[in-house]
Simulated assay, not measured.
Amino acid sequence: MASGPDVFLNPGDFHFAAAGTRIRTVLGSCVAITLWHPRLRVGGMCHYLLAHRPAPTADLPGLSGRYADEAVQLFLGEMDRNGTRPTEYEAKMFGGGDQFPGSSPGPAPHVPKDNIAIGMRLLRRHGFHLTAKHLGGTGSRQLVFDLDTGDVWLQHNERHTAQASS
């Protein structure tokens, strides 16, 4: 495992770095995408909360890792800086766990499912090769992404619904 810096991503954070770095996060309904370039040993992780920015806001100028479409744009910017293309990266995607199993979202969007669907569409649209995924279900996930090897360690804490007794 990497012996360099350990970076923790909060919801909405994005980090791109070189070998020697570990990136960690904890996910619920949010989704993390990891990208790793095996030859250059560079890559990054995003931790997005929603598919798209609901409306332009003055408090978040520029691109934000809070939104899937903007997080992918942040990745593409890093690739431009490194002279690389999406097809050269190993992409992995995690999260989108239902935090309230058994409850109906009603007319509101179903955030976990929407987060998964947009992430998959964006990766396909930009030509990324998905090499691993752990999506949906319930509960939280803890991730550690090692930029030395491209490995991601996952701990899934599945949440079970309580059964009503009669």
Rank of each mutant, 00 (worst) to 15 (best):
P105S: 08
H160G: 08
T131P: 02
L9Y: 07
G95R: 02
H52N: 11
S166W: 15
I118K: 13
K113R: 14
H15N: 11
L40W: 12
L9K: 07
A55I: 12
A17E: 03
T161L: 14
A18L: 03
S29V: 02
V72M: 15
T25L: 07
K113V: 14
P54L: 00
G4P: 04
G127E: 05
G44W: 13
R159D: 08
G43P: 01
F8W: 12
H52F: 15
Q99S: 12
S29L: 05
T161Q: 15
T87A: 11
L147N: 03
T138I: 08
H52G: 00
G102L: 11
H52E: 13
A32R: 01
F75M: 10
I116P: 03
H52I: 08
V26M: 07
N82F: 12
E158C: 14
F128I: 06
T84W: 05
H156F: 13
P86L: 08
P86V: 12
R121H: 12
K92W: 07
M93I: 14
F128Q: 04
G83E: 07
D114F: 01
L135S: 05
G95V: 10
P112E: 04
V7W: 09
L76D: 09
W153D: 10
H110G: 01
C30A: 06
A51P: 00
Y67C: 01
Q163L: 15
P109S: 05
D6R: 15
C30M: 00
A108I: 09
V31F: 01
M120I: 14
R124L: 09
T149Q: 09
N10A: 12
D6S: 14
G102Q: 10
R141S: 13
L40C: 03
M1V: 13
G20F: 09
M1D: 05
T138S: 13
P109A: 06
L123Q: 02
D59N: 04
L49V: 05
I23F: 11
L154Q: 13
P61F: 05
G97E: 10
L135A: 07
A18N: 04
N157G: 09
A58T: 09
G96K: 00
A132L: 01
R124K: 13
G43K: 06
V42K: 04
P112D: 02
H47S: 01
L35N: 02
D80T: 15
T87H: 09
Q142W: 10
A91W: 12
F128L: 05
V7D: 01
P5K: 14
L27D: 03
F14G: 01
L123S: 03
P101Y: 06
T131F: 01
T34W: 05
A162H: 15
V7T: 10
P107Y: 06
V7G: 02
S104L: 13
